[in-house]
């Protein structure tokens, strides 16, 4: 319990630190929203005034953030919270779909590889994994679009339907972007699971079980997997954080109106209110994921207790 409490304190401090960095970062970047929108065209009349020093401004911002009020988007002229709501749902769908895909694919493949390391199947999967791991998301996205969208015509690039209009259509459109993010992560995950199992299989208790006459499957699923998956959990938490970061790229390539695209567009247009809200959200996701992993790691494996 004390451990959990300590972790929680850590989490709050981290998020606070991130919020300070996010807030001050924008003070340094040149340009502001009005000049970007006006371009080389006009001069906007402004009756807006910024009051208070930087600390007061930060205080006001964090106070609003706590109740979900991030001010108004200068680019879209609407409250940031309205803007975020719908897009958050889209990105969360994308993230969850990715995670499901990664879990569904990497576990069976990892086990398959670990069963006969060096076998044909293992070699093929490992080779493919290396290729996928080295492929950046945007390239993977374009590749998928060209293969499945332009050549095979399985889906229509850019024909996004809102989840509110047609949920099935929405989910089916999201499969490709989810795949684009998931494939490189799957590759990493398969490798990690494979190696973790192989290491575990070399342990003494496996030999003991074998000599007792336990079946190979029984050893794998009853004993080895349980132990081998513990480090995988930590790794998975990192992957989850990466998935949400990866969605920035995939949303751009597939024109998905999610948080990622909003972030890119708000950075380019110097829409600070939107930017800082999204960055805060992303950092919370990352920090919470990491903490959950730490906590799970701790409780799943009591042996670690003495080390902490």
């Amino acid at each position: 319990m004390r451990y959990l409490f300590r972790k929680l304190i850590e989490l709050i401090i981290t998020v606070l630190a991130v919020s300070v960095v996010t807030f001050t970062a924008f003070m340094v970047i040149p340009g502001d929203s009005d000049t970007v929108l006006a371009g080389t065209e006009g001069i906007r009349q402004s009756v807006k005034e910024e009051s208070g020093n930087i600390i007061v401004q930060y205080g006001r911002w964090i106070k609003g953030a706590l109740v979900g009020d991030f001010g108004e988007s200068s680019q879209f002229k609407m409250p940031v919270s309205d803007l975020l709501g719908e897009r958050l749902i889209v990105t969360i769908h994308l993230g969850v779909m990715c995670i499901i895909l990664i879990a569904l694919v990497s576990l069976p493949f990892g086990i398959l590889c670990a069963r006969k390391p060096g076998g044909i199947l293992d070699n093929v999967i490992m080779a493919l994994s290396n290729v996928f791991m080295a492929t950046p998301e945007f390239f993977m996205g374009m590749l998928l679009t060209i293969i499945f969208g332009v050549t095979l015509r399985w889906f229509i690039p850019g024909r996004y339907t809102s989840y509110a209009v047609d949920y099935v259509g929405f989910i089916s459109y999201m499969i490709m972007p989810a795949l684009a993010i998931a494939l490189p992560k799957m590759a990493q995950m398969i490798k990690f699971i494979r190696n973790s199992i192989i290491t575990e299989l070399k342990k003494d208790y496996v030999r003991t079980a074998l000599s007792k006459g336990a079946g190979k499957n029984r050893i794998m699923y009853r004993h080895v997997l349980k132990n081998a998956l513990i480090p995988v959990i930590t790794f998975f938490a990192i992957i989850i954080a990466q998935v949400f970061a990866g969605s920035i790229v995939a949303e751009q390539v597939f024109s998905v109106p999610g948080i990622g695209r909003l972030l890119v567009s708000s950075v380019l247009n110097r829409d600070y209110n939107v930017c800082s809200a999204i960055l805060l959200y992303i950092s919370i996701v990352v920090v919470v994921c990491n903490m959950t992993a730490d906590v799970m790691y701790y409780y799943l494996n009591p042996r670690k207790e003495e080390k902490i």
Partner: peptide
């Protein structure tokens, strides 16, 4: 239809969406 960039847009054209 608002797309992220001209590259994404062109892929959509190749796919027949615009």
């Amino acid at each position: 239809k608002i797309s992220a960039d001209t590259d994404a847009l062109f892929l959509e054209l190749m796919g027949g969406n615009v």
